[in-house]
């Protein structure tokens, strides 16, 4: 079982309970989690469908791999339409650069905002969503920090308590405690080990559970809806390795949709 398979299943088990509405996902794991929840668990979220990585003709849009799985979208929603749907129940499954112990997320940069030491791409839609959840596939104190330098959004301002999913745990924001609360932990790590790999302090649920292994039915379905293994890309950090993986996927997709769609 891969880390990606288990993460997708963890996400699926929890987003199944979110109210019917739209979901906007920013990682392969999140997209697959919603797809598993839709198909196996009765989840009524619809993924942003039209602008995804597959266009309606099924052509790979490598620019948008997080949405690679919308080949048969449940709804045709254009980009502006995503914002129009935010008056309805909506869930953003975001992958910011950093999340801190106060539920702040940063997608802008490190250091001074005017002249950052390290600039990221920009805040995107983080402050806009009515409900925001975080998916950081690789659990690392580099991304799970005590305090972010720039608050793109603060998830604690939302009525719906936010989820924080990583390969090693599921935490949920606790409004009463004003802290992340650990609710599920992976079998291969203990709480001390998790604290050592987390840059902020967190509370522990009285009902702390081990993360479930992915059942056979979900694993089989993953291979159907993600035959090229895009979910594993969330865990590749080396640039060359990542580009090699993308290139393999690109070539496979070009074979699928037709070589006439490849620029010459």
């Amino acid at each position: 079982m891969s880390r990606a398979d288990r993460l997708s299943w963890t996400i699926a088990r929890h987003v199944r309970h979110l109210p019917a509405g739209t979901a906007f996902t920013a990682s392969s794991s999140a997209t697959l989690g919603v797809r598993l929840a839709q198909q196996l668990l009765g989840c009524r979220l619809s993924l942003w469908g039209h602008g995804g990585a597959y266009d309606p003709a099924g052509i790979l849009s490598v620019h948008a791999r997080p949405w690679l799985f919308n080949r048969r979208p449940h709804a045709r929603v254009t980009l502006p339409g995503v914002f129009d749907t935010q008056s309805e129940p909506h869930a953003l499954l975001a992958t910011p650069a950093q999340v801190d112990g106060q539920a702040n997320a940063n997608l802008s940069g490190l250091g001074e905002a005017v002249r950052p030491k390290v600039a990221f791409g920009g805040t995107r839609g983080l402050p806009d969503a009515r409900a925001v959840h975080f998916v950081l596939p690789v659990h690392s104190a580099r991304q799970l920090v005590e305090r972010v330098d720039f608050v793109s959004t603060c998830a604690a301002t939302r009525d719906t308590p936010s989820f924080l999913f990583t390969e090693l745990c599921m935490m949920r924001w606790s409004h009463p405690a004003g802290a992340w609360e650990l609710q599920e932990i992976a079998p291969e790590i203990d709480i001390g080990g998790l604290r050592a790999r987390t840059g902020f302090g967190f509370a522990i649920s009285d009902e702390l559970r081990r993360i479930e292994e992915i059942p056979d039915a979900a694993r089989s379905l993953l291979h159907v809806i993600d035959p090229l293994g895009l979910r594993d890309l969330d865990f590749i950090s080396d640039r060359s390795e990542l580009l090699d993986a993308f290139q393999r996927i690109y070539e496979a997709e070009a074979d699928l949709v037709g070589r006439d769609r490849v620029p010459r």
Binding site: D55, I59, S61, V62, F246, Y250, A254, R261
Partner: peptide, 13 residues
């Protein structure tokens, strides 16, 4: 190019 113009063509990888 080198970006895509969907559905006409994929990006230039």
């Amino acid at each position: 190019l080198p970006g895509s113009c969907l559905p006409n063509h994929m990006l230039d990888f």
